[in-house]
Amino acid sequence: MFILKRQDVEITTVQHPNREQQIPILNYQGQTFRLMKVFNVNQNPEALAYWRDLTDNRGKACVLLEEPERYSVWGKVRLEQLAREGGGGGDAKIPALVQASLLILQAVYFDVEDLLGARQAGAFEKDLVKVFQDSQFPSSDSLDAVKTLLTKDPLDSLQIPPWKEDHLKTLLEELYRLGKGYFGNTSFAEGLEEVLEDLPDEDREFFISWLGQSPVGKLWAIG
C-alpha cells in the first residue's frame, strides 16, 4: 500500500481497552496502522518481501516504514477493533501468547537437539526446569512437565500451562540467555515469523505487537 519514511508519519500509543498494554499506532493521512513485524536494517529484502506478500497476495492494507535503524510493517486497523481483542476479559488473549512462546521455546530446543546432540538437549531440559522452579512457573516445575512442553504441539493442546504475561517475559528472557550460551551466538533469535507461521494471523500479529512493547522484544529482533 505505502512505503513511508519516519518523517511522513506520526507514531503514538493507545491504551488497549481490555488489557494493561500500550499499543503502538502509526498515523498517516487520517488512517491508523498497528505494528505487525520489525526487521533489522540489513533485512531490506525480507521486509519488502513480507510487505508485498501481505499487500499483493493477501490483500491487506499495510505500511512499510523505513527508519535509519530498522524496517517495520504496519497493518491497517480501526481503533475500535482493539476492543474486540480482549473478548470481554483482560486475559482472553493470554492463551495465544502462551502458544506463541511455546513455539519459540520448542524451536530453540529442537535446534539444540539437532545441532548439538542429545546430551546437550538433556542439559537444556534441566536448565529449563531450574528456570521454571526459580521463577515459580505453575504446573511446569518438573522434568516430566518440561519434556511435555517441549514435545507436545501447543496448537493442539487444550491444556496449555496457566502462565501469565510476566511468566512469558521471563521465559523469553531466560530462553534467550540459554540459547546464547548453548550456541555462542544470537542467530537462533531471528526469523520468528517462520516459527510462528502456524498461528492464526490475528494471534501472530497480536503476539508480535505484544512482544514489541517489551524490552524482551529487542532480544528477539522485535522493536
Rank of each mutant, 00 (worst) to 15 (best):
Met1Glu: 06
Arg6Met: 11
Val9Gly: 08
Ile11Val: 15
Thr12Leu: 13
Gln15Phe: 11
Gln22Asp: 11
Gly30Arg: 13
Phe33Ile: 04
Phe33Thr: 01
Arg34Asn: 07
Leu35Val: 06
Lys37Asp: 12
Asn40Met: 15
Asn40Ser: 12
Val41Ala: 15
Glu46Leu: 10
Ala49Thr: 10
Asp53Asn: 15
Thr55Asn: 07
Asn57Lys: 12
Arg58Leu: 09
Gly59Ala: 02
Lys60Cys: 00
Val63Ile: 06
Leu65Gln: 02
Glu66Cys: 07
Glu66Gly: 13
Glu67Gly: 08
Glu69His: 12
Tyr71Ile: 06
Val73Tyr: 03
Val73Lys: 08
Trp74Phe: 00
Lys76Cys: 04
Gln81Asn: 13
Leu82Met: 01
Ala83Arg: 10
Ala83Tyr: 06
Glu85Asn: 05
Gly86Trp: 01
Gly86Ile: 03
Gly87Ile: 01
Gly89Thr: 13
Lys93Gly: 13
Ile94Asn: 10
Pro95Gln: 00
Pro95Lys: 05
Pro95Ala: 05
Gln99Leu: 04
Leu102Trp: 06
Ile104Thr: 05
Ile104Asp: 02
Gln106Gly: 08
Phe110Gln: 10
Asp111Phe: 09
Asp111Tyr: 05
Glu113Val: 07
Ala121Thr: 09
Ala123Gly: 15
Phe124Val: 06
Glu125Lys: 14
Val129Arg: 00
Lys130Gly: 11
Phe132Cys: 12
Asp134Ser: 10
Ser135Gly: 14
Phe137Leu: 10
Phe137Asn: 05
Asp144Trp: 13
Thr148Ala: 09
Leu150Gln: 07
Ser157Tyr: 03
Ile160Ser: 10
Lys164Cys: 05
His167Arg: 05
Leu171Pro: 00
Leu171Asp: 00
Arg177Asn: 06
Gly181Leu: 03
Phe183Ala: 03
Gly184Asn: 05
Thr186Ile: 02
Glu190Lys: 09
Val195Tyr: 05
Asp198Phe: 13
Leu199Cys: 05
Asp201Lys: 07
Gln213Ala: 15
Gln213Asp: 11
Pro215His: 01
Trp220Pro: 06
Ile222Trp: 08
Gly223Asn: 09
